[in-house]
Nucleic acid binder design. Structure first.
Lengths: 244, 244
DNA sequence: CATAGATGAATTGTATGCAAGACTAGAAAT
DNA sequence: ATTTCTAGTCTTGCATACAATTCATCTATG
């Protein structure tokens, strides 16, 4: 049937996005922005009231965010913003380092002029932010720079995974950037990463990206793992004061 | 995701799992078992009737599976079992190779006697399956072997990610195993991987795992990427929304 | 005084109903 | 005969109602 080809063309049509999808984005953004802090309860009723919808689409959004690991949905006990234990956080960063370095390795192998230009532009933006000492701006530009590298792997699936994890870690990454005042150091590392990718040196690019993400945290991670025989990855609150 | 024993028991107390969670597992199992083939429609009404529940928990299960990337949920157009394009499939396998090799690298660095024993046991089971020529059994044991390696990374987050992707690719992996009749070859590669991990040779372990997963597919992947200048964004495309 | 048990309030899980968008088939027109 | 328009059916999306379970508070008891 020739009609099928014709029908395909109707796919340019823009379908209305469901409310649940919009809500998912909104809630995710609110979490990333820090409006909901780790440990905070995501109450279905209040979220429904806040967004002017019923509980149903809220529930659907929360469950999806839970499936992505963005929040923690406990059966019959409601959803909370995940509170990863220190060990869990190291594990997440270590995973981020591995995935990022994989992207860098592939990018070094497959670099195209377009991807190169995108990374260059993002790098320039980072430079500008550092020059102006704008930490918030650097945070945003840094995100774009890393996304450009993920894309440069020319593996959109891997890039999606990388970016998803990047978003999940954004709150802690921001702390990391601020706490150590390592804007300039970060920028220099970026330059080294770019250099390695452009040289087509897969190993070097992977290593530099790995170290860039972990920031000397690797050995510390190993140490923690060595000490802690058993690991708890519970989201159980460390909210109230120290257990006495 | 890390759904194993999610709602089973937390802090001694056993909570009743929600229907939606059970349904999620059931539907996922059905997809993995090949009962629903890629492209098949997952109709809410018929699934509800099949499991004897209303549409609500079915919907919630489908949305969660969609968020995990296991199926493809299109707004207002229902859910289907994902039909990755060949390019997409290569990307998924390549990502699996990268994540698996990362697990192997960490396993080589941190191997404990317990993890070693677990891998050994799984390897023995694989040997037995090959000796008896039981392809189905090997498929199951192979899965356990790889899971043992993921766990041996001593990074439970990374291991969860790896296992989730492994499950997602199970249908195609089974084809891969059968089509090439490479049971024996696979077993020998397993032995080589174990050897490298035990020797603490991170690079070798990573490389062997990488090659084991990709099975000479790497160059082919590069070739496909090289030929296809632009990649189709199929219906099974990324869920990155309007991110530019 | 502390702890265990029970009762009421609050919150989540599921079912049902209705509205709106998407698919199908048929008729009209070129 | 092919395409376009249209009407009807089917499916999904959301709201509401109710059931089930968890949490908090209070009381009784050692």
């Amino acid at each position: 049937m020739f009609c099928q080809a014709y029908g395909m063309e109707m796919q340019d049509r823009v379908y209305t996005m469901s409310q649940a999808f919009r809500l998912k984005q909104s809630i995710e953004d609110a979490v990333i922005a820090g409006e909901f802090q780790p440990g905070d309860r995501l109450d279905e009723a209040s979220l429904a009231e806040r967004f002017g919808v019923s509980r149903t689409p809220i529930r659907e959004a929360l469950l999806q965010l839970g499936a992505e690991g963005f929040i923690d949905v406990r059966p019959r006990r409601g959803a909370i913003v995940s509170v990863p234990s220190p060990t869990r956080l190291f594990e997440m960063f270590e995973t981020m380092a591995e995935i990022a370095s994989a992207c860098g390795r592939l990018a070094a192998r497959r670099l195209t002029p377009e991807n190169d230009a995108a990374m260059e532009a993002a790098h320039r933006a980072c430079e500008m932010a550092v020059r102006e000492g704008d930490s918030e701006q650097y945070y945003a530009d840094n995100r774009n720079f890393h996304e450009a590298i993920y894309r440069a792997s020319r593996n959109s699936f891997l890039a999606d995974q990388a970016f998803a994890l990047h978003k999940r870690l954004s709150a802690y990454r921001r702390i990391q950037l601020r706490a150590r005042n390592r804007l300039l150091q970060s920028l220099q590392e970026h330059a080294g990463i770019l250099e390695a990718i452009r040289a087509g040196d897969e190993q070097l690019a992977a290593m530099r990206l790995h170290d860039h993400v972990l920031v000397q945290g690797e050995r510390f991670s190993d140490m923690v793992l060595g000490l802690a025989g058993d690991r708890r990855s519970d989201a159980a609150g460390s909210r109230s004061g120290t257990a006495k």
